[in-house]
Design a protein around this nucleic acid. Structure first.
Lengths: 169, 169
DNA sequence: TATTGTTATACTCTATAACTATA
DNA sequence: TATAGTTATAGAGTATAACAATA
């Protein structure tokens, strides 16, 4: 009764910012994953390398908490990174139960390659925008991310269940 | 040898537009899925309802091709939508193998509810931006989507493998 | 013989739970 | 008893392949 709403070119929310963000964001994720494939890595690996580059010596638990990954999942990811020689599980000096995670030299090189891949990716993705527009877009997205409480540099794909900060209801 | 590159506040691509799009886009997808939960629907259902609202009478094959979904996956999704009474599989007049898919009245109502949910979602998501900025953002995203060859209104989450248009290499 | 939709199967990914060893 | 990491198990989701009915 309110309105028929059928077939009116769908002008409302379906083409709104919410959907466009999901759509273009999903495309960006998929394309980045494709570009990472030839390096033998997935996006989850890249995120770990990045964190360890900034904060070497983390334990698996600390790393898992920072990214929002379950410990059991982290085991496999670190196994793969170890097999590729990019990350080392060194014995922790104080506590013999835990490891101190460190990037190897090859790990830092891989991170450089990932950075170049990310640059190419971004270049391709933003081909429709000039430099000033890209800066504006980055500003908008960073503000949204901050207001929504997203952790800088941490992809929500890591977090699957059980937010630690559930104050909403 | 080139550069140490360790710990320099990560100024380069990691905080670039490519990552921000993935991050905020993933967040948008996750939050929208949460908001859809109480309606008993997932984003994939919403996309189907939307297409059928615009193009009623489609066969499952035609719908699958438009969205990039495998036929076998579509069966389950349409079963669920049928069970909820939102979509009807009517007999096709010409070809008795295929169905003609139609939204029911309840399906159109559900689509209205989804529209309201999407509006709330977008409102919450863009709280950091004023109206003019949201319009600019939407413009940027629409231009990127068009240049990247994304189909309007179709989420890349449907497409999992085997692009029909692989002309790149 | 080709096509529409379906069912059956297998595979990937990830969370939950049980377990080992240290503390 | 509690904690770090691991292994084992199970569940969700989805692609591939085999199938029945119709063309």
């Amino acid at each position: 009764m309110a309105r028929p709403r059928a077939n009116p070119e769908t002008p409302g929310p379906p083409d709104g910012v919410g959907f466009l963000l999901s759509q273009v964001g999903g495309h960006s994720s998929a394309r980045f994953a494709e570009r990472l494939g030839p390096l033998g890595l997935r996006p989850a690996h890249a995120g770990i390398l990045r964190v360890l580059d900034q904060a070497g010596g983390l334990s698996q638990q600390a790393l898992g908490e920072r990214l929002g990954v379950f410990p059991s999942r982290l085991v496999g990811l670190l196994d793969e990174l170890g097999r590729l020689g990019l990350v080392e599980r060194r014995d922790s000096p104080a506590d013999r139960r835990s490891y101190a995670l460190h990037l190897t030299g090859a790990g830092r090189e891989a991170l450089d390659r990932i950075g170049r891949v990310a640059c190419e990716h971004q270049e391709d993705l933003c081909a429709a925008l000039d430099a000033s527009e890209r800066a504006q877009l980055a500003g908008f997205l960073a503000r949204i991310a901050a207001q929504q409480g997203l952790t800088p540099g941490v992809h929500p794909g890591y977090r699957k269940l059980g937010d630690p900060d559930a104050k909403g209801s």
